[in-house]
């Protein structure tokens, strides 16, 4: 057990070190796009969006929940990228010849991605706060938002890592990523509530786990516990099923890839 922890913490610290040496790219590729969505999209649609439809005091406070979950989505789907590079340059092979538990590599990645995502979510909520968005459920609500983010993120990261181990080249990986991410955002309640969508899009969005996450995060920010609790209960169930499916599928891939 002590050995297991030594492996996991050393591998996790490696990801942290890498990130800290890539401050510039971190700033521009991870944080900024999400803030752009929030700041520009949120303010841009302030008058174009119908408050009757969004059921929110302003568009930016409506959008905050969407941007929070989009952050989880993007981080999760990109969570396997570093493993992909490790696989391509042989570093993974080097790790695999050491007497470690095979799961340590995977676990270190989960821990790292979840931590970074949570920090980013806090940044998003902080910036939203500057634009006057005050979470209705307070600190406990924020903790709940982080929990929902992690529940969703685990499944996504698992998919991403499984993809990293299966694809032939990183070009394939990034095309699949691009192909998944935008439709997942548009076919969810991130930008427009289900009720405001064309019927076919609303129908499809219902099967998107992102929608469930957003529908739970949004009342936590906008209205309060009474409105939010049923959604939170529901999203926990949905995410447990989602994670179970993702983990089951990816575990097979991991076992094949790492022996």
């Amino acid at each position: 057990m002590k050995e297991y922890w030594q492996e996991i913490s050393a591998l996790t610290m490696r990801w942290v070190k890498r990130l800290s040496r890539e401050k510039f790219s971190m700033l521009f590729t991870l944080v900024q796009p999400m803030l752009f969505w929030l700041i520009f999209f949120g303010n841009l649609f302030q008058r174009a969006a119908d408050m009757q439809v969004t059921q929110a005091p302003d568009y930016i406070s409506f959008l905050t929940a969407g941007v929070v979950v989009m952050t989880v989505l993007n981080n999760g789907l990109a969570g396997g990228v570093d493993l992909l590079f490790d696989k391509e340059n042989g570093f993974l092979e080097r790790l695999m010849t050491t007497p470690i538990h095979r799961s340590s590599v995977i676990l270190s990645r989960f821990i790292f991605v979840m931590t970074i995502t949570s920090l980013q979510v806090l940044v998003i909520l902080g910036v939203a706060f500057l634009f006057g968005v005050q979470p209705a459920t307070g600190l406990l609500g924020i903790a709940t938002i982080l929990m929902i983010g992690m529940l969703f993120g685990v499944g996504l990261t698992a998919i991403s890592m499984a993809m990293a181990f299966s694809v032939k080249s990183h070009g394939d990986f990034f095309s699949v990523l691009g192909f998944l991410s935008l439709p997942a955002i548009f076919l969810s309640s991130a930008l427009v509530p289900l009720a405001g969508m064309p019927a076919w899009m609303g129908f499809l969005a219902r099967f998107n786990p992102m929608t469930w996450a957003i529908d739970a995060v949004r009342p936590l920010i906008l209205t309060g516990w009474t409105e939010a609790l049923p959604h939170v209960g529901m999203v926990v169930v949905v995410m447990v099923i989602f994670d179970a499916l993702c983990l089951y599928g990816s575990a097979k891939v991991f076992r094949r890839a790492m022996g």
Binding site: R14, K17, E93, T98, I100
Partner: peptide, 20 residues
């Protein structure tokens, strides 16, 4: 098989932990 962002010493330290 080198992580270009890590220093030489960090490579060895990482492996040290992986060999317990």
């Amino acid at each position: 098989a080198i992580d270009r962002f890590l220093t030489g010493r960090e490579h060895l330290e990482l492996l040290g932990a992986l060999y317990h």
